[in-house]
Nucleic acid binder design. Structure first.
Length: 636
DNA sequence: TTAGGGTTAG
């Protein structure tokens, strides 16, 4: 081809219209462009033919939700590019096959990528795979299926042909083994290079966050000769993923102090940390930062924002964000549903579920956890049963332990204890401790000692050190003033060396997170807190409240009952909130355990006597206290 | 003409 002809073709090249920066391309466009190329005879030129094929193939890779219209479209584009290859007048080149391997590498199944790899090896023109081939081929492994065999084959081939030290292949291998959870294998690859580059170091750091070894991850981070924004993100994400949320936020502060560029990925991890901590002020700050810097609200970022608002107690604002989001995926819908269920808005949760289905989004197992919780908090037993049955019948999802647990909870909360027991007995899988736990909680609500003892026995058989079982049973006895029973539980805990997880409540004041443990006097403003606690007791007593000392049995080791009630971590946090927050500001607490009856009653009364809205997130759900009432209607 | 690391729901 002469240079002038090439220029003309390039200038009017319709293939450039397939560039992904033009946004989604419909198959119809591809047909049009194909027709044009044919009419003008452009496809006779191998270069343009190859360019066209590669462009079509590259339109397809993306993580679309199976069965979504976009997914279908992309599958058709993949088929289209394969047809082009099959009917090509030109022999395939490594570039063309690389393009197809890459196109398949983003999908859930590495098999088609390997098909094209074999085609490359068996080509009559004796083509050889190159560094690009292995980057894509390795990248296709690790996402789908439990088998790491394909990945090992790709690794071996890359090794044989000497491509492992290519930085792209090297980092792809580390990431692949990390995705299989094979940390040792990732480490061996990492150690093969004497001086891995920043990308490989970050991949290794990510592999060590994912495996939960946060200390080693931090060592890797600190030992990096140089760090770019992605390395910072990886470390922040690591903290966030293992629940070390405070460290995540601290590192985010350092990142800003050092003037490192903040990206969407950073903010997603920061929002996750805020959601975990219940740090609404900091979460709001991130939202404002996004608006100030006009950051594009991607699906992931928007979803993280919805989650943050819901988990920080402001589900209304979370739903505002949700409705404004242009693009929603199954994560977004499930997050919103989970938030609504957590706040007791079961009916709304189910409405969103219907809307999601109308939008053609396929629910996952996680979605159904929210659906069933929504039914549970709304007391919709039959509807819950229908949804549970539809999981397998309509969507081919085998229920997980969690779904069975939700069903027991659903029957139990509705007072249908017999149905709950029957459900457990008819489970096709071995009932797990949580299922018995849900039954035990129902026995607490409905004060069924006999069944409660049985559920507890089953629960302890499975998890002998599950302190939750002991606490629940102890409460059942205490509620019925069966002090002998309470004592037995206490002795049995001591004998088995079971310790109750210490209660911890967190409250955010002025963007700072304050943490309180049971009987904790380490806070710098403890003196004032103590005075406020006395004031609370005085005013509650005036209002006719007597502490329910039986709930003290939560604190198995504490002998001073009356005092201990006052010292539960959420009371400390509430007292601090009353002191440190402005007049009328609502108090938001995040607690690691379930709220006990006494704290629940006391908080209701505090909300009335002090005229304060109090929002408590406990292990399971939210409680909105206002004017002496709680949104859970004493049902949790 | 092709490339690697960080990002969401229970």
């Amino acid at each position: 081809m002469t240079t002038s002809l090439r220029n003309i073709i390039t200038r009017h090249n319709p293939i450039t219209l397939l560039d992904s920066s033009f946004g989604p391309v419909a198959l119809a466009h591809v047909h049009q462009i194909h027709a044009q190329l044919l009419v003008h005879g452009h496809l006779n030129y191998p270069l343009l033919f190859v360019q066209f094929l590669a462009a079509v193939a590259l339109l397809s890779p993306s993580n679309t939700t199976p069965s979504s219209p976009q997914h279908h479209e992309r599958q058709l584009l993949l088929l289209y590019s394969q047809r082009l290859l099959d009917y090509s007048p030109h022999p395939p080149t490594t570039f063309v096959l690389n393009s197809l391997i890459r196109a398949h590498s983003r999908g859930p199944d590495p098999a088609p990528a390997f098909r094209f790899y074999r085609r490359l090896l068996c080509s009559p023109d004796a083509l050889s795979p190159d560094r690009f081939t292995f980057t894509f081929l390795v990248g296709s492994c690790g996402r789908g299926g439990p088998s790491s065999a394909a990945g090992e084959i790709a690794h071996a081939a890359a090794l044989r042909r000497g491509f492992v030290s290519n930085p792209h292949v090297h980092s792809a291998l580390i990431r692949m083994y990390a995705q299989f959870g094979l940390l040792d294998a990732a480490r061996r690859v990492y150690d093969e290079l004497p001086d891995p580059d920043l990308v490989s170091r970050t991949a290794m750091l990510g592999a060590v966050a994912a495996a939960g070894d946060i200390v080693l991850a931090r060592e890797l981070f600190d030992s990096m000769p140089r760090r770019d924004p992605i390395a910072w993100n990886a470390m922040i994400a690591g903290y966030s993923q293992v629940g070390r949320s405070r460290e995540a936020l601290e590192l985010f502060s350092s990142m800003q102090l050092e003037g490192v560029r903040v990206s969407v990925a950073t903010l997603v991890s920061v929002l996750t940390a805020c959601a975990h901590l219940g740090a609404l002020d900091q979460g709001k700050w991130v939202h404002a930062y996004m608006q100030r810097n006009r950051l594009r609200v991607t699906v992931t970022l928007g979803t993280a924002l919805v989650d943050m608002y819901s988990k920080c107690g402001d589900v209304g604002r979370g739903m505002d964000v949700f409705w404004r989001m242009q693009e929603k995926n199954v994560y977004t819908w499930s997050t919103a549903m989970s938030g609504l269920a957590m706040h007791g808005a079961g009916k709304e949760c189910l409405d969103i579920f219907e809307l999601m289905k109308e939008h053609g989004v396929l629910p996952t197992g996680v979605t159904f956890v929210s659906v069933l919780r929504g039914c549970s908090v709304a007391g919709l037993v039959e509807e819950g049963r229908r949804h549970f049955d539809s999981m397998r019948d309509q969507y081919g999802i085998d229920p997980w332990h969690q779904h069975y647990g939700c069903m027991v909870d659903l029957y139990g909360r509705a007072g249908r204890l017999d149905d709950a027991v029957h459900f457990i007995n008819s489970m096709p899988i071995e009932p797990h401790a949580r299922a018995w736990g849900a039954l035990l909680n129902a026995c607490r609500i409905y004060r069924n000692i006999e069944l409660g003892e049985y559920a507890m026995k089953k629960m302890v058989e499975m998890e002998s050190k599950n302190h939750g079982a002991y606490v629940l049973l102890s409460n059942i006895y205490a509620e019925s003033r069966n002090w002998g029973g309470v004592n037995d539980v206490r002795e049995s805990m001591k004998a088995k060396g079971v310790r109750k997880e210490p209660g911890c409540s967190v409250i955010e004041v002025g963007g700072e997170v304050h943490e309180f443990f049971v009987g904790d006097n380490s806070h710098p403003r403890y003196r004032e807190i103590e005075v406020m606690l006395r004031e609370i007791s005085r005013r509650l007593r005036l209002a006719g409240y007597a502490a329910k000392t039986n709930a003290v049995m939560f604190d198995i080791e504490d002998e001073e009952k009356e005092d201990a009630v006052c010292w539960h971590s959420e009371k400390l946090a509430i007292a601090f909130g009353l002191i440190a927050l402005g007049e009328g500001a609502s108090i938001r607490i995040v607690k690691n355990l379930r709220v006990c009856w006494d704290c629940h009653d006391a908080t209701k009364l505090i909300s009335k006597v002090f005229q304060r809205d109090i929002v408590v997130r406990d292990r399971n759900r939210f409680h909105h206290f206002r004017d002496g009432m709680c949104s859970c209607m004493d049902y949790w």
